Computed example of a mutant assay.
Amino acid sequence: MKILLTGAAGFIGMHVALRLLARGDEVVGIDNLNDYYDPALKLARLARLRAHPDFRFEQVSLEDGMALSEAFHRATPQRVVHLAAQVGVRHSVVAPHASAGSNLQGFVNVLEGCRAMRVEHLVYASSSSVYGANAQLPYVEEQGVDHPMSLYAATKRANELMAHAYSHLFRIPTTGVRFFTVYGPWGRPDMAMFRFTKAILEGQPLDLYNDGNMVRDFTYVDDVADPVLRLLDKPATPDPAFDPARPDPVSSDAPFRVFNVGGGHPVHLLELISALEDTLGRKAQRRLMPLQPGDVLATGANTQRLHDWIGPCPATPLRVGLRRFADWYLTSYQGAARA
């Protein structure tokens, strides 16, 4: 197939693109290569993709509607994977306009591109952060998501609602994917696993917010990329059981679906630190900090709905994933930095 993938130079985007290319798809990658974190890491990811003859890259910002529209017309995609966004719960607190521009206006531009090209299916990244103040664990898609704790979470929930509107109005099949704390090789420097590893290896203190009393459903990146491809291959369809008198919030009489994609095994933050210490062979210096604005205390994914739709999904054990991440960090990442 011909696939347009936004956020191709990003963490999850690179892994998804490599899988698409490995199975023989043509991929047009879109990314603005901004400096939210070191662009050198994005360029290194991009270099891996450029090695494939079926990959083509265009540097385009989502907010530039005209440029994105032209990229859609050049790509003539059959299906679209939209992973680009201004990420970061905490970043959205200090830079709200960046989140709104990329995640709201940018998403409208993606939807318009899909409408103009009559794409067969749009799979887009949502986030577990949409569950917000909801404290009922594990999170199930049918739960309420109307109390976001950050602007980032609000933009991701807005994306789901915007996608439904386009599915209803223009019958574009759309599937939203609520990611849960993804980690692994080629990850972002602002992510917890990356920051903790860097601090331990450099002998710097780890900032543990809410005194470390946090729980996260850490999900290895391969366990995210696999279901993204399988969802892409199974376009959303109207739910024949949908009842407008008692509407299911994540299905519809339009071709619209939303799924949790997470490991399903929440881990206490202090347990993660202990496992990371064992992996790296070093002890962490811990600095206990208060809870930050926008953070939630715990996350955990119920993925039964996803499994019912596409079948069983891979689940990499935490210590296996940590070993793979550490090996990449110590060789490829630190090696490139030293060079």
Rank of each mutant, 00 (worst) to 15 (best):
G10H: 03
A22W: 08
D25F: 08
I30T: 05
I30K: 00
L33H: 08
D35P: 07
D35Q: 12
D38S: 12
A44Q: 14
L49E: 02
F57M: 02
E63I: 15
E70V: 03
V80N: 08
A84P: 00
A85Y: 01
V87C: 02
S102Q: 07
G106H: 02
N109Y: 01
G113P: 06
R115C: 04
A125W: 01
S127V: 00
V130Q: 03
A133S: 08
N134D: 13
V140R: 15
E142R: 13
E142K: 06
G144K: 10
V145T: 15
Y152D: 04
N159E: 10
M162D: 07
A163S: 09
A165Q: 14
S167V: 14
P173Y: 12
P173S: 06
T174E: 06
R178H: 03
Y183E: 03
R188H: 13
F194Q: 13
I200G: 05
E202Q: 15
Y209T: 15
N210G: 10
G212Q: 08
N213L: 11
N213D: 14
M214G: 05
V221M: 07
A225P: 00
L231N: 02
L232C: 02
F242A: 05
D248T: 02
P249D: 02
V250W: 01
D253L: 12
V258W: 00
F259C: 00
G264L: 01
E271K: 09
L272H: 12
I273P: 01
S274F: 07
A275H: 14
E277K: 07
L280G: 04
L280W: 09
R282T: 06
D295R: 03
V296M: 06
L297A: 15
A301Y: 14
H307E: 13
D308I: 02
W309L: 10
C313V: 14
V320I: 15
V320N: 12
G321I: 01
L322C: 04
L322Y: 11
D327H: 13
W328G: 13
T331Y: 07
